[in-house]
């Protein structure tokens, strides 16, 4: 998809604690054939470590896009979102909330915390693949992403 000659992969940070969803995501991304470099954090604290280059994530790249689950161990997805959006530089990174919940309260809360969009994980496999595909189409090809260094 990336047409520039010095093709750099698109960096995605996926914050997801459920290994089943993680594998599904890998399957879905695999079908999309995009040039993506995926970093995975399995809880909120690890997500912040990636973003702050801490712990075992010293050399991880700053992501172009963050896919964030809400219900996470240790640091909750809402806290992660609040922290990112309060940070002078990190707040530029688009955060796509990708969660099981379709509760009105969760949706409002996420947008109040300046989530860039909110998506409920669909149930069927086909729908799941479609949704990941449209996330990719929109955020990785249509949208002009900010440079965050």
């Amino acid at each position: 998809m990336n047409t520039s000659t010095s093709a750099k992969p698109i960096e995605i940070l996926l914050v997801e604690d459920n290994p089943g969803d993680l594998d599904l995501m890998l399957e879905a991304l695999d079908e999309n054939k995009l040039f993506i470099n995926l970093t995975v954090a399995t809880d909120g604290e690890e997500a912040m470590d990636v973003l702050y280059h801490q712990g075992k994530h010293l050399n991880d790249p700053i992501p172009d896009l963050i896919l964030l689950d809400l219900n996470l161990p240790k640091k909750d997805g809402r806290e992660v979102l609040a922290e990112i959006k309060a940070h002078e530089i990190l707040r530029r990174i688009p955060v796509v909330v990708f969660t099981t919940s379709s509760a009105e309260s969760d949706i409002l809360k996420a947008y109040d915390l300046n989530a860039n969009c909110y998506i409920t994980k669909p149930v069927g496999l086909q729908q799941f693949l479609e949704v990941v595909k449209s996330i990719n189409n929109f955020w990785l090809t249509v949208v002009k992403l900010p440079r965050v260094d």
């Binding site: 969803d21 599904l24 099981t100 069927g124 496999l125």
Partner: peptide
Amino acid sequence: SHDLQEPLRMVANYMEL
């Protein structure tokens, strides 16, 4: 009903996969 969705999604998705 929210917490039940999660495991159910796993069953449905992986069966289909």
